[in-house]
Write a protein that binds this DNA or RNA. Structure first.
Length: 274
DNA sequence: CGGCAAACCTGCGAGC
DNA sequence: TGCTCGCAGGTTTGCC
C-alpha cells in the first residue's frame, strides 16, 4: 500500500485524532515487526502527549512531549485504523494499540510485518539510520528539474532504479515510478545519466504531478485499505500502466509490457516510452 | 562500486 | 475442495 501519497493520506487521517492528544493506554502484542520494537517501547510511549504528526518520505513521525519521536514505516502491508467509539475485538495481525485521552483507539495492523517502529530523540532524528541520507520530497521546494539533472548525472543504473532510490528522491515506489516514467515518455530501461535537458525537465514535472494528484485522490488502494477510516483511495483508477500488462496503452493502443528490474515488476509502453 | 538474488512475512488468486 | 505456485505497494544484506 504505502508510497508517499498513501503515507500522506494516513498522516492526514491520524493527525486530527493524535495531535495534542495523550497516549493514555499503549499495548503491543508482539516483540518485533521487521525489527524488534525499541527497548521499553510501551513505557516510553505511555502518557506522552503528541505534539506533531509529520511525514518524511514514507515515514510517519510523531513528536512526543518526552522529546522523542516515534518513527513508523508501513512496509508493504501496514495499516492504521481509527475507532472513535468502542473498538471491535482485536483482529489477526493487530500489533500495536493506542488509546488517547479523547477516547480514540488507534490500531496498527500489518500482516507481512515489513513495517517498522522506532523511537529516537527528536534532536537526533536526522541521524536515524532509516532517515539519514534521504533525498528531497518529490513535491517539495528542493526537488525540481535542476536537482534531478544533477542527481542523475553520472549514474550508471537505469532511470527506474534511480527513481526507486530513496537517496535520490524520497517517497517514490514501484507504482509512482512506473506512472511518472509513462507520463514523461521515458523508457524505464534508459541509463539514468542519459536523461537530461528537456527530458529531465519533463520527468521532474511528471513526478511532482503524479504524486500531487495521487495525494488528492487519497492514494491508491490495491488489495488493502489505505485510509485510516477504512475508505479506499481512488488513484488506482488513474493508473496508466501499473498492473496493466497486456492491456492496450491509453495513448497508442499497443500492449503495455511487464518486465522485471531489480526484482520488481516494471510496466511500460514500449512505443510511447523511449 | 554495481547488479542481482535472497531475506524478512502473510495472503490471495490462478491453475491443476 | 485443496494443493502448489507466483505474485504483492519496501528495504536490507550478502554474494559475485
Amino acid at each position: 500500500m504505502p508510497e508517499l501519497p498513501e503515507v500522506e493520506t494516513v498522516r492526514r487521517g491520524l493527525e486530527p485524532h493524535l495531535e495534542g492528544s495523550v497516549l493514555q493506554q499503549v499495548r503491543c502484542f508482539r516483540e518485533n515487526l521487521r525489527k524488534p520494537f525499541p527497548d521499553d517501547f510501551v513505557t516510553r510511549l505511555q502518557g506522552q502527549r503528541i505534539g506533531s504528526v509529520n511525514r518524511q518520505a514514507k515515514f510517519l513521525l510523531l513528536g512526543l512531549s518526552s522529546g522523542e519521536t516515534l518513527i513508523s514505516h508501513l512496509g508493504m502491508s501496514g495499516k492504521y485504523r481509527i475507532f472513535t467509539s468502542e473498538p471491535p475485538a482485536l483482529e489477526k495481525h493487530d500489533h500495536v494499540e493506542w488509546v488517547t485521552d479523547k477516547g480514540v483507539t488507534i490500531r496498527y495492523n500489518d500482516p507481512r510485518r515489513f513495517g517498522l517502529m522506532d523511537l529516537i530523540e527528536t534532536t537526533r532524528l536526522d541521524d536515524h539510520p532509516m532517515l539519514k541520507g534521504l533525498g528531497p520530497e518529490p513535491n517539495g521546494n528542493f526537488f525540481g528539474p535542476d536537482y534531478l539533472k544533477a542527481a542523475l548525472k553520472g549514474r550508471g543504473c537505469t532511470i527506474k532504479d534511480a527513481l526507486m532510490n530513496q537517496k535520490i528522491v524520497a517517497g517514490l515506489g514501484n507504482i509512482y515510478v512506473c506512472e511518472a516514467l509513462y507520463r514523461a515518455g521515458i523508457s524505464p530501461k534508459k541509463k539514468a545519466s542519459t536523461i537530461k535537458g528537456e527530458r529531465a525537465d519533463r520527468l521532474a514535472g511528471a513526478i511532482r504531478e503524479v504524486i500531487n494528484e495521487a495525494i488528492e485522490s487519497g492514494g491508491s488502494s490495491l488489495k488493502d485499505y489505505v485510509q485510516t477510516n477504512g475508505e479506499m483511495g481512488y488513484f488506482q483508477h488513474a493508473f496508466q500502466v501499473y498492473g496493466r500488462a497486456g492491456e492496450p496503452c491509453f495513448g497508442c493502443r499497443s500492449p503495455i509490457r511487464r518486465i522485471v528490474q531489480a526484482g520488481r515488476s516494471t510496466f511500460y509502453c514500449a512505443k510511447e516510452q523511449r
